[in-house]
Computed example of a mutant assay.
Amino acid sequence: MADSFDVHAHPVIDTHCHLDFDDFAPERDQVIGRARDAGLARMVTICTRVRKFDRIRAVAEAYDDVFCSVGTHPGNAGEEPDVTTAEIVELARHPKCVAIGEAGLDFFYPDNAPRDVQLAVFRANIDASRQTGLPLVIHSRAADEDMAATLEEETGKGPFPFILHCFSAGQELANVGVRLGGYISFSGIVTFPKSEELRAIAKTVPHDRLLVETDAPYLAPPPKRGKRNEPSYVVHTARVLGETIGLSEPKIRDLTTENAYRLFTRMPRAA
């Protein structure tokens, strides 16, 4: 059993959640209160549709410790295929917007937008990240080769900060992401009993590129598996990631928090 410690002396950051989703509407204040009690210093609530940014922004504006992103999820690219870099950049001027995305490629679901539409929207988000300097939150599922090729090509046009969020891909994409300067964010998936391969990949990621997230309301880690996920549960993911790479719980919290502040340059440190 881990030694007890002051969670507020070792704060943790949930770098990816969806607090605007209806799952949280009845008790958003309580969810955020539980996160604070667990020692969370910051939460980043992530946009999935540029044209619904108002609801994301409203959540971020309502809580001092909640920040947000703006972008189009690949699963929603068909709803706004004409979203422009200029539109994203303009919305990203909001002081509580600390990232672009989530954007990327998702070839897992056949009903998603066509691949060329996903790619075009992804490139618009990449351009917005490059122009603003804000990190791009990347969603990649069943698209390792295409994602690696796109990152190689786009980085060649000019660097941009990025996160491979909710990482569940293969070793090669992790290698490409790290080589191109990206961060790798692990969700509750890394805690699942059958995720031995993912934990092996986590061991290969440089410590200064590691982040933790919930992707709440999805993917709750044990001992909360099967429940609606929420930001406070990120502490369980951090603990398992720490065990995987040989760091104590306080140290993994400190490490991933410092990494988050380094990446999200617009997000102020908690007092």
Rank of each mutant, 00 (worst) to 15 (best):
residue 47 C to R: 10
residue 83 V to Q: 02
residue 208 D to K: 09
residue 199 R to N: 08
residue 233 Y to H: 15
residue 120 A to V: 02
residue 78 G to E: 11
residue 89 V to T: 12
residue 147 M to I: 08
residue 96 K to S: 09
residue 195 S to L: 00
residue 34 R to W: 03
residue 74 P to H: 13
residue 179 R to T: 14
residue 87 E to W: 02
residue 156 G to T: 06
residue 179 R to L: 06
residue 229 N to Q: 07
residue 79 E to M: 11
residue 242 G to V: 03
residue 252 I to R: 07
residue 101 G to K: 06
residue 186 F to T: 00
residue 59 V to K: 05
residue 36 R to S: 12
residue 262 R to G: 01
residue 48 T to I: 12
residue 71 G to R: 13
residue 271 A to G: 15
residue 250 P to C: 05
residue 225 R to Y: 09
residue 69 S to E: 11
residue 45 T to H: 07
residue 269 R to S: 07
residue 252 I to M: 14
residue 89 V to E: 11
residue 197 E to S: 13
residue 39 G to E: 07
residue 156 G to W: 04
residue 213 E to N: 03
residue 215 D to C: 11
residue 235 V to L: 01
residue 92 A to I: 07
residue 98 V to N: 08
residue 129 S to V: 04
residue 268 P to A: 10
residue 264 F to M: 06
residue 197 E to D: 15
residue 92 A to C: 10
residue 29 D to V: 10
residue 207 H to G: 09
residue 214 T to Y: 01
residue 178 V to I: 14
residue 174 A to T: 09
residue 73 H to M: 06
residue 217 P to T: 05
residue 186 F to H: 06
residue 86 A to H: 04
residue 78 G to R: 10
residue 134 L to T: 05
residue 128 A to R: 03
residue 243 E to G: 12
residue 193 P to N: 13
residue 212 V to P: 02
residue 265 T to P: 00
residue 200 A to W: 05
residue 51 R to H: 11
residue 264 F to K: 00
residue 255 L to M: 09
residue 88 I to K: 12
residue 236 H to M: 09
residue 39 G to A: 04
residue 150 T to C: 15
residue 104 G to S: 14
residue 174 A to S: 13
residue 68 C to F: 08
residue 218 Y to R: 03
residue 89 V to P: 09
residue 215 D to K: 02
residue 177 G to P: 01
residue 10 H to T: 00
residue 183 Y to L: 01
residue 31 V to N: 06
residue 34 R to N: 12
residue 2 A to N: 14
residue 160 F to W: 05
residue 223 P to T: 08
residue 140 S to D: 08
residue 168 S to I: 04
residue 234 V to S: 07
residue 161 P to G: 06
residue 254 D to Q: 13
residue 188 G to M: 02
residue 8 H to N: 09
residue 230 E to A: 08
residue 93 R to Q: 14
residue 164 L to F: 13
residue 86 A to W: 03
residue 158 G to T: 04
residue 117 V to K: 07
residue 126 I to A: 08
residue 138 I to P: 08
residue 229 N to D: 07
residue 39 G to H: 03
residue 151 L to G: 10
residue 6 D to P: 04
residue 113 A to D: 03
residue 147 M to T: 15
residue 18 H to V: 01
residue 21 F to E: 11
